[in-house]
């Protein structure tokens, strides 16, 4: 049983994101097909599968980085209710992406400005929505660096002088500074040493729970979803073959592919 589900009273369970029959084709190649699911506030969804299973395509469409071939992605715009993100105007969508949403890329270079100091990276989203007090931006920068366990004395250093794990922490801080309600993460621990991965996962779990952020995490690593995700979707060849509560799916997989995946990973 998910901790989040237990925490959230039924009255608050209005969907944050509703995905309906989402399909993305590249020519006659299927990226993902007929994917439907719902995300509730504060909930963490894991999407697992091998490379080529369509999980990254799905994440890119969900986060409005590419348009779908068919289907809809509805997001709860608070006052305006659920709206298909692909019917929003471009400025509305861009604003959503830099305030209410966050995207944590696998490669921190894709999500950070490598030639801007750590403090500037953290402050960018705040400045984009009108923050004009240097001192406050500075305080926020220090505060968030501390939250992601980065050495605050390095606030004026550029990310290119940081290690991979530190860059990933900085990318997370840069995204969370506007307190988004939904964060998309693509293999957030990929490419990091195992010991660094474990600490980062711990940190992510703490932050997501503390701030009540909903997240969609794409990974090939079942250990990541075991630790972070409330619910799980298993993808194969563009289709979702199995979905359910993380513990249920991992402990009692029904689909033969999931069984294969679980057995191969759990042996490691």
């Amino acid at each position: 049983m998910s901790a989040v589900m237990a925490m959230n009273p039924v009255a608050e369970r209005r969907p944050l994101l509703k995905v309906n029959k989402l399909t993305k084709h590249y020519g006659d190649h299927i990226g993902c097909e007929d994917v439907s699911f719902t995300v509730y506030p504060g909930e963490v969804i894991g999407i697992v599968g091998e490379s080529g299973s369509g999980k990254s395509t799905l994440l890119n469409v969900l986060s409005a980085q590419m348009p779908p071939t068919s289907g809809a992605v509805e997001y709860d715009l608070s006052a305006k209710g659920l709206r298909d993100i692909f019917t929003l105007s471009e400025p509305e969508r861009r604003k959503l992406m830099r305030t209410d949403w966050g995207v944590v890329h696998q490669n921190p270079r894709d999500g950070l400005r490598m030639n801007v100091s750590a403090g500037g990276n953290v402050g960018e989203r705040l400045m984009a929505i009108g923050a004009r007090h240097y001192g406050e931006l500075r305080r926020e920068g220090l505060d968030w660096m501390a939250k992601v366990e980065l050495d605050t004395s390095r606030i004026d250093d550029k990310p290119k002088t940081f290690s991979g794990g530190m860059q990933q922490r900085l990318q997370i801080a840069r995204n969370l500074v506007t307190r988004p309600r939904l964060v998309f993460m693509d293999e957030p621990t990929g490419g990091l040493d195992v010991s660094v991965q474990a600490r980062l996962l711990d940190l992510l779990r703490g932050l997501v729970r503390e701030l009540g952020i909903a997240a969609i995490i794409v990974t090939h690593d079942l250990a990541v979803v075991r630790l972070l995700a409330d619910r799980l979707m298993v993808m194969r060849r563009g289709h979702v073959v199995e979905a359910g509560l993380t513990d249920q799916v991992l402990d009692d997989p029904h689909h033969p592919y999931t069984q294969l995946l679980v057995s191969s990973v759990l042996q490691v």
Partner: peptide, 8 residues
Amino acid sequence: GLMHVRLY
């Protein structure tokens, strides 16, 4: 926002 990042 980016212009202010430069000033920051």
